[in-house]
Structure formats: structure tokens, C-alpha cells
């Protein structure tokens, strides 16, 4: 069979399945990135707080998640998350029935926790990059804590964090290949199924690599223009 027939958009070819896999990969990455950003905002707050306990909690989160293999986190969620939820439902709500948490969401949360740990470091660094004098100045003109946060900190932190978050996005995109072990039909899993069915692993893994490269290349360009847009008011030497 030639390559075009293998990758055709019909019932016998795998082109449409692979593209669908690319859509799933994108969906998981976007959800994971969003979940990770929510995590990282909380983790940044706890890492920068004055409370020793919450600092330790934040540091433990980023150190542990960044220190163990992504695959291990994903396995842990795949095998343990549903049981943990059922145990929690049992003890908190006295709910004894069996249920299955959607595996797509489990995957998004698992990858989200990984990407959140990396985002935390990026956002923390950006917070610290805002000059102290600006916060002092904001205090001296009588801004409240919330006003300082959303008028002074957020606009600058978003700009400083953009390049770093772009890197995290690329990492997240590639980490989603690991959720193929959860049997979610993203690029990698679809390629595995197609390779198994057609006995043509080379074609499909190359095609999978091309799809990932497309995603990362498009992201690189999008991130570059986003950075240019965000920095258009900044003076440069």
C-alpha cells in the first residue's frame, strides 16, 4: 500500500483519524494549560506568601512535580485518580455508588498539574521582576492591595511571563503524547492503533512527528507575534 492510500481521508485511510487526533491533542493541551495556569496562580501566591506553611506547600508542589518523570504523574492519575475521587465521595458525601470520572478530564488535570508546576516558576519570576519602587509608589498614592495587584502587577507580570509561558506551552504540547497510555485517541495513540492495524509503523510515527512539529512551529510563530504585540509599548535599545 502506498503512503497516500494509508493517509487517505476515507474509511480505509487514516488521515482523518490522525487529524482528529491532532484536534484532541490541541484540546488536551489547551485545557491542561488553563488548568495549570489556575494552579500556578495559587502556587505562586503560596510561594510568595509570608506564611511558612504555605511557602513549604508551594515549594513542595513545584519541586516534586518538576522532579519526577511526567509519565509517573500521568500513571498515578490514570490508575489512582478515580479511586481517590470515589474514596473522597464516600467519606465526604456518603456516596457509595461506582462512578467513572471522564478520562479526558483526568488527562487534562494530570498534564495540567505538570504544566502548572513549570508555570508557577515562570509567574513567580515575573512577579519578582516588577521593580519594588513601583509597588512603593502605588502604596504612597494610596492604592489598596487589590488595586496594586490589578493596576500595577498584573499588566507587567503578563508581559514578563509571556516568553516563559510560551516555553511551558511547548512542553505541555509534547507532554500530551504521554497521555496515549490512558487510551485517549490523540496523535500518538491514533498512530499506535494505525501502525498496529496496517503494519506500517514507520509511516505513522513519522506522520505523528510531522503533526507535532506542525503544532510546535505554528505555536512558535504565534508566540513570537504575541510577544511583539505585548511589547509594542516598550522602549528598546
Amino acid at each position: 500500500m502506498d503512503i497516500l492510500a494509508l493517509l487517505a481521508f476515507d474509511d480505509t485511510g487514516w488521515g482523518d483519524e490522525m487529524l482528529m487526533g491532532m484536534v484532541i491533542t490541541l484540546l488536551v493541551s489547551v485545557s491542561a494549560m488553563a488548568i495549570g495556569l489556575v494552579f500556578s496562580v495559587f502556587a505562586t501566591m503560596s510561594k510568595l506568601s509570608n506564611n511558612v506553611f504555605s511557602r513549604v506547600l508551594g515549594n513542595t508542589y513545584t519541586t516534586v512535580v518538576r522532579g519526577i518523570p511526567e509519565l509517573l504523574v500521568i500513571y498515578l492519575f490514570f490508575f489512582g485518580f478515580n479511586n481517590a475521587l470515589m474514596a473522597a465521595a464516600k467519606s465526604l458525601f456518603n456516596y457509595h455508588e461506582y462512578f467513572e470520572f471522564p478520562v479526558f478530564l483526568t488527562a487534562a488535570i494530570a498534564v495540567g498539574i505538570i504544566s502548572g508546576a513549570y508555570s508557577t516558576e515562570v509567574i513567580r519570576g515575573s512577579f519578582l521582576a516588577v521593580p519594588k519602587g513601583q509597588i512603593e509608589a502605588a502604596k504612597s498614592v494610596g492604592m489598596s492591595k487589590f488595586q496594586i495587584f490589578h493596576r500595577i502587577l498584573v499588566p507587567q507580570v503578563m508581559r514578563y511571563a509571556l516568553p516563559g509561558l510560551g516555553n511551558v506551552w511547548q512542553l505541555t504540547l509534547k507532554d500530551t503524547a504521554l497521555i496515549s497510555v490512558m487510551a485517549i485517541a490523540e496523535i500518538m495513540r491514533t498512530a499506535q492503533i494505525a501502525a498496529g492495524n496496517t503494519k506500517e509503523p514507520f509511516v505513522f510515527y513519522i506522520f505523528a512527528a510531522i503533526l507535532y512539529l506542525t503544532l510546535t512551529t505554528v505555536s512558535t510563530h504565534a508566540l513570537n507575534s504575541a510577544e511583539n504585540w505585548a511589547n509594542k509599548g516598550v522602549r528598546r535599545a
Binding site: 509534547k174 507532554d175 503524547a177 504521554l178 496515549s180 500518538m188 498512530a191 499506535q192 509503523p201 510515527y205 505523528a208 512527528a209 507535532y212 512539529l213 510546535t216
Partner: peptide, 8 residues
């Protein structure tokens, strides 16, 4: 591309 793709 992901390391997993390269390994496979």
C-alpha cells in the same frame, strides 16, 4: 517532537 515519538 515528543521523546515518545522518537523512541517509537
Amino acid at each position: 517532537s515528543p521523546l515518545l515519538v522518537q523512541v517509537f
